[in-house]
Simulated scan of single mutants.
Amino acid sequence: MTNTDKTRSPKDATVTEVVLPGIVEPEGLEVRTRPVPVPGPGEVLLEMEATGVSFAEQQMRRGKYYDQPPYPFVPGYDVVGTVVETGPGVDGGLVGGRFAALLKTGGWADRLPVTAADLIPVPDGIDPAEAETLVVNGVTAWQMLHRTARVRAGQTVLVHGANGGVGSTLVQLALLAGVRVIGTASPRHHEALRALGVVPVDYRAPGLADRLRAAAPQGVDAVFDHVGGAGIVDSFRLLAPGGALVSYGTAATRDTPGSARLPVLLLFGRLALWNLLPNRRRATFYNLWAGRRSVEAFRARTRTDLIQVLELLADGSLTAPVAARIPLDRAAEALRLAESGTVSGKVVLTPVP
């Protein structure tokens, strides 16, 4: 028997989910229904309030995400929702509580089983869509800034894609830490970045490396680069002595045909080579799931970091830009919008009205 605060009605007997059937255009996503799952031992049934469209899903639909599961599967890297049932061995007192969870896949469903140990409480009064934008993005930004690059007040950093999901959070966390921020973005986002205190640079205009060097003649203390490709060389060259390059993606090769692994392996090789040079600079690839082999340590680290980020959101120190709120059954529209590069913040999927 499961613990629940309500008896399932006929409407509750099925779950709506979005399935990625293979390498398809966004319109190839399939909206399906199936019997609602019963939470197993150590699990809860979470009623989704918000789930995100991240860069991972953009890669997965192209078959380009490094360790994605075989098709078909339900995408959805993270989720915020309310516990409606608990499985055997789980405290029934969790029912009715709002939690966030990192999943990697499975979040694009209106109800889904989640391992209870992976739940992270969301403070009262926070909009679920805003909280959702800070699950994977917030943990990623916090850890890259404070655990990987270890920035300090008075330093200067460069954030590529400063208007994006991770980038916009990185910018704010860096500014809160007393760090000067240079951010690349298209001109339409420059006014908003200046209002925050960021030095914006147009990444599309010619001579990007020279213009970035002009903004930081002595170099920068850290670069956060999700682009990869040939431009990663300029990111490394912009570092001041003692600086850190934190690479966390290969967006430049998102649409390049061929192996999903090759661009990543080439990037790993380049970063490793730079670390062998006597240049007093560090080059790291950030992987959110690193250390997952020690599950308890991974969970503790993720919980600690996300709680800090959500507390900043709750007290108004941090904002969570939601680019759009789109119902789950319009996931194709949401994915297309997220891939357009025209929005600031994160596209969020919400329950079907």
Rank of each mutant, 00 (worst) to 15 (best):
L158M: 13
T156C: 10
V227G: 03
G165I: 08
A174V: 14
T253R: 05
T250M: 10
P241Y: 09
P206Y: 01
Q218H: 07
A240V: 05
R204Y: 04
L262T: 08
R213Q: 08
D221W: 01
S259R: 10
S247F: 09
A252P: 13
A209D: 03
A185I: 00
F268I: 11
L173C: 14
V198Q: 00
I232K: 01
L239S: 07
T256K: 04
L170S: 12
T256A: 06
L193Q: 02
G242L: 12
A230W: 01
L212G: 01
D225P: 15
I232G: 01
L208H: 00
Y203C: 06
G242P: 13
L176G: 11
S235P: 14
G183E: 06
V199E: 02
P187S: 04
Y248W: 06
V201T: 00
S168I: 14
D210I: 06
S259W: 04
L266C: 05
R204F: 03
G229D: 04
G167Q: 03
Y248G: 07
H160N: 15
H189M: 08
R188G: 09
D210W: 06
R204G: 09
L208S: 03
F224R: 00
Q172W: 10
R180K: 15
G219H: 01
R254K: 13
A205T: 04
A162G: 13
P187M: 04
T253E: 04
V199N: 00
A251P: 09
A251M: 11
A185K: 00
R150E: 15
G167A: 13
R152V: 08
F268S: 13
V201S: 00
A209M: 03
G154D: 07
G231N: 07
L245Q: 00
A214N: 01
T253L: 02
R237T: 09
L262R: 11
G178I: 12
A252G: 10
A177W: 06
R213T: 09
F224A: 01
Y203I: 01
A240C: 12
P217E: 00
H189K: 14
L170V: 13
G231A: 07
D202L: 12
Q218A: 15
A192P: 08
G249N: 11
G258Q: 05
V198I: 06
S247T: 11
